[in-house]
Each structure stands twice: as structure tokens, then as C-alpha cells.
């Protein structure tokens, strides 16, 4: 299976799956380019768990504190998840 790489110069091509999440040189301009990394199993699990956790928290807040609590809590949790995402 091949995986997609797209360079800032606009070139789009496919590389071996071993390179997923890594860097490869663009055949057109020669610069190192990020390869799509969706294969990483832990990354998928983390994304899924974060999304599910967010939905559960927002639903619970809505049930217990009403729409304002759900809105504020949901926004705060989204900000925390965003911070964690930046650390990756």
C-alpha cells in the first residue's frame, strides 16, 4: 500500500507505507516533505478517545448544568485537548 505525500511546492505523490508520518524528499523540488501519518495506531486511538471523551463530558454537563455549563465546559475541554495536541 502506498501513502500520500504533498509538498509545499504543490507536488503530490505516493510513497511506501514505511514512511508514514515521516519525511521524504520531494521528487520535484528536493525539499523534505511530511508524509501523511494516519497509520499510527496510537494516534488514531488517542484521537478517537479524545473526541468520545469530549462528547460524553458535554452531554453530562448539559444534563447536569444546562446549556451554559455545557458550552463553557465544552470550550474549556476543547482548549485543554488543543494544548495537548500542540505538545505532539
Amino acid at each position: 500500500m502506498q501513502i500520500r505525500a504533498r509538498c509545499a511546492c504543490g507536488h503530490l505523490w505516493y510513497v511506501a507505507q514505511d514512511l508514514a508520518g515521516g519525511l521524504t524528499n520531494c521528487p520535484r523540488c528536493g525539499k523534505a516533505t511530511q508524509v501523511d501519518g494516519l497509520r499510527d495506531p496510537l494516534w488514531r486511538v488517542l484521537q478517537g478517545a479524545a473526541a468520545l471523551g469530549w462528547v460524553v463530558v458535554v452531554v453530562l454537563l448539559y444534563a447536569n448544568t444546562g446549556p451554559l455549563g455545557a458550552l463553557l465546559g465544552g470550550a474549556a475541554l476543547a482548549a485543554i485537548l488543543g494544548l495537548i495536541y500542540l505538545m505532539m
Partner: peptide, 12 residues
């Protein structure tokens, strides 16, 4: 690193 968890970890 290419992946967060990868037993044969590869680094570019």
C-alpha cells in the same frame, strides 16, 4: 520520529 508508537521506530 515517524510514529508515536512503533516497535521498529524510524527517525528521519
Amino acid at each position: 520520529a515517524r510514529q508515536i508508537v512503533d516497535f521498529s521506530a524510524a527517525y528521519d
